[in-house]
């Protein structure tokens, strides 16, 4: 017991599989961390459709324990992870996107990703209407209850803090300044789990081809 038997070198890979050495060279992860992420990826990508690709329903299932019902934020994250925009998240997309959430990833990558996430209509700016829509969506999914006037106050206050040139839209530069002053706004952009991914998915050792 305790020993690792030699693994099948060419076990079946999911469609769109990319070599961990290549992904590690392009991301914040080590090769072993990418291999551990592959264990997570397989679990997620076979949870409903059994095709080795993560579909939106599988992503929702993992986040909410149910695949039913859209969630504005989860669906936005899915769409941003789906770099090829073909409706599924492939392994390389999964690793490259999650890399931004690594605690070691550059702050500028996190800032840029959050900007794209909140620029709901992809205009290159975050508009007040988008901010209001996101606050309302957050309230809908949570137990928080705020009056319409409280929502307006929060949206107006935040918007005026961020929109420093007063042109009624937040541009990437203004966003960068805003998150520097309000770092808690990017709290969700760092996942401590990613530092312990090899511990969380130790079975990667069974399939590992390198020793970091």
């Amino acid at each position: 017991m305790g020993c690792v038997l030699s693994s099948p070198r060419r076990s079946r890979r999911t469609p769109g599989y990319e070599e961990p050495t290549v992904l590690a060279s392009q991301t914040s992860f080590t090769v072993n961390e990418v291999e551990a992420l592959y264990e997570l990826y397989k679990k997620l990508s076979y949870s409903i459709f059994k095709d080795g690709l993560i579909h939106k329903e599988e992503f929702r299932l993992a986040l909410f324990r149910t695949s039913k019902g859209a969630n504005l934020f989860a669906d936005r994250v899915f769409d941003l992870f789906d770099l090829k925009r073909n409706g599924v998240i492939e392994f390389g997309e999964f690793v490259r996107s999650l890399s931004i959430f690594h605690p070691r990833a550059p702050e500028s990558d996190k800032t840029a990703f959050a900007f794209k996430l909140y620029d709901l209509r992809g205009t290159g700016y975050i508009e007040k209407e988008e901010l209001r829509e996101m606050v309302v969506a957050l309230l809908d999914e949570s137990d928080l209850c705020l009056s319409d006037s409280a929502v307006e106050e929060i949206v107006d206050n935040t918007f005026s803090q961020a929109d420093s040139n007063g042109d009624d839209r937040i541009d990437p530069k203004e966003w960068e300044e805003f998150v520097k002053k309000n770092p808690a706004s990017l709290r969700n952009m760092s996942l401590p789990y990613l530092q312990d991914i090899t511990t969380a998915f130790p079975s990667f050792v069974m399939h590992s081809e390198v020793d970091d």
């Binding site: 986040l63 934020f73 901010l131 999914e141 206050n157 918007f159 309000n182 789990y193």
Partner: peptide, 25 residues
């Protein structure tokens, strides 16, 4: 009345943005 949080901080608490859930068994 709760202390006023900035709207982006509020949004960041969405479960849909809590990707840590993906790592929970």
């Amino acid at each position: 009345r709760p202390a006023v949080m900035n709207a982006f901080e509020l949004i960041s608490t969405s479960q849909g943005l809590n990707l840590g859930t993906l790592f929970e068994k």
